[in-house]
Simulated assay, not measured.
Amino acid sequence: MEFLKEVAQLYQERSEWFGQLICEHILLSLIAILLAGVIGLLLGILIARCEKAAPPVLGIANVFYTIPSISLLGMLIPFMGIGDKTAVVALTIYGIMPMVRNTYAGIKGVDEEIITAARGMGSTEFQILTRIKLPLALGVIIAGVRNMVVMTISVAAIASFIGAGGLGVAIYRGITVYDTALTFAGSVLIALIALISDLLLGHLEKKLKKRRMN
């Protein structure tokens, strides 16, 4: 209980600082999420249309996904320096994999008979993609978005090790000065942001499923 009181007091005394770190963390994560979302979606659509491109694209994405986050940041520093820009690139690379995989799986999971029927009715490939494939694959794609968002918010904590902002600064500072309350305070806030984001996306996913059933 004494430890939790210390954490609560820390939030109260340094509320402005934590508020600033929260804003930085959300902004950093949001930029990476948007970039990974767009790139991953486009790549997923591309490899679903061109099957030959699927194995190499998914393979490369898998390789980057398996590299430890701190190692990837270290590999990017000689080329991009330190700071937010390098952190955004690293987070984007990590976020692309679940988006590509789920977009590809969702589109390939659409019943071929539905697509054939749409073609028979004179629909163009673009109409089939935007009105049939993507809407039917939306549930799988949203699941990929949830995975990517939570992972990006969590991994963003390590960005402070290369001079980027966010709540990782509180964790890093707490570790360096042996302040467990500060480390815990930063970690809890990151977990809360990730949890709230996942709950909101889960609510959106349920709404989309209800619309499809109606």
Rank of each mutant, 00 (worst) to 15 (best):
N102E: 04
G165A: 04
I47R: 06
I193M: 08
I77Q: 13
Y172G: 12
L43R: 06
Q127Y: 07
K5P: 10
L43T: 00
G163A: 01
V149P: 00
Y94D: 05
Q12D: 10
R212V: 09
R146N: 03
E125Q: 14
T92V: 08
G44W: 15
L189Q: 07
V155T: 12
S123H: 14
T66L: 03
A191H: 05
G120T: 02
I93T: 04
A194Q: 05
Q12K: 12
E51T: 10
N214K: 13
E112M: 13
E2R: 11
A117H: 06
I60T: 15
I47V: 10
M121S: 08
F79M: 05
P55Y: 10
F79H: 14
L46C: 13
T86N: 02
M1W: 12
E24M: 04
Y11L: 05
M121Y: 01
T130S: 13
L35V: 12
L195E: 13
R173G: 13
G168T: 05
I114G: 15
G37Y: 00
R14E: 13
L201T: 06
V145H: 00
K210P: 10
G106P: 03
D111E: 05
G202A: 14
N102P: 07
I132P: 02
S187P: 03
Y172Q: 15
E112S: 12
I132Q: 01
G186M: 02
P55S: 03
Y172K: 11
I193L: 08
S15K: 10
L42V: 10
E6N: 14
V177A: 08
G81F: 13
G168D: 02
A156L: 02
S15C: 07
H203P: 06
L46Y: 14
E16T: 15
K5L: 12
V150R: 03
R173M: 10
G174L: 07
A48E: 07
I33D: 09
L199I: 11
V110M: 04
G120N: 08
V7P: 07
G74V: 04
I70P: 12
K52C: 14
C50S: 12
I190C: 11
L72W: 00
G120W: 07
E6V: 05
S15P: 02
L10Q: 05
G106I: 06
A36D: 00
E113T: 13
A118Q: 09
V169S: 04
E51P: 15
F79S: 12
G174Y: 09
A32N: 03
A185G: 05
A143N: 12
I107T: 02
T103W: 09
K207S: 15
T116P: 08
A157D: 01
T116S: 14
G44N: 02
T92E: 04
L4R: 09
V63L: 15
V38C: 03
L204K: 04
K210F: 11
L27K: 09
V38R: 10
L73D: 09
A53V: 09
N102A: 07
G186D: 02
G37H: 01
F126P: 05
Q12A: 15
L200V: 11
I193K: 11
M148F: 05
E205A: 12
G186Q: 10
V140M: 07
I96M: 06
P68N: 04
Y94Q: 08
V145E: 01
K206H: 07
M151W: 12
I93L: 11
L35M: 08
L129E: 03
M151K: 10
